[in-house]
Nucleic acid binder design. Structure first.
Lengths: 97, 97
DNA sequence: TGAATATATGAACATATAATCATATAATAT
DNA sequence: ATATTATATGATTATATGTTCATATATTCA
């Protein structure tokens, strides 16, 4: 693996390495949701959610569609869910909880 | 997913979210290596490597065996490699590089 | 048009994290 | 026993990251 790949990989995995982002990804794994819905679900400010959604957009973890004044976010592709599921299984097996 | 799981998952993925740790994991994917070998391979101080190995130990990413005064580290299990490989493929497909 | 609503974003602040430096521990060799 | 080598670790420092606060933008509605 070359250096650029390593850097890209670390940026990629970093997305999963924050509780707020994981909660967002988890919330989006079922439905697409707008910023307000996510904020309410996570009990956090719109601003905090919006900032994290921007981070997730930068890494192409989420896609979005603007309808009127609300923006609906959803997971960019099934890889995200697969990786989440894999990590989840790993945690379960380990009994790290 | 409950809150504890989310926290454990974020801690788990955090391990992959740092360039130094990724390099260490990558280096260990072939062989087991001692601290000095890793340090030399990554061109970093023993101390920095040792600190990161401790972090990786905490999350059970690596196992180690002490022979004489040298400590040989290796990946704890094949999950680590699988997740690394999966992320790598994701990056490649995306053409994020 | 002006007010209200939804989201985005820049700056500031607080916290977390990684590397360094100094030192400690442990094993070996002289 | 003392010196050397390999690793570990605590404290400090520098940087990165996440949240908040204030404000901007965009869309809808009265």
């Amino acid at each position: 693996m070359n250096v650029d790949t390593i850097y890209a990989l670390s940026e990629f995995y970093k997305m999963f390495g924050d509780v707020t982002r994981l909660k967002i990804l988890n919330a989006l794994s079922d439905n697409s949701l707008c910023v307000s819905e996510i904020a309410e679900q996570l009990q956090m400010t719109h601003s905090a959610i919006s900032h994290q959604l921007q981070v997730l957009r930068t890494q192409n973890f989420v896609k979005y569609e603007k309808i009127g004044k609300t923006v609906y976010y959803s997971l960019a592709d099934e890889h995200i869910q697969i990786i989440l599921k894999y990590g989840y299984e790993h945690i379960q097996e380990r009994g790290s909880i």
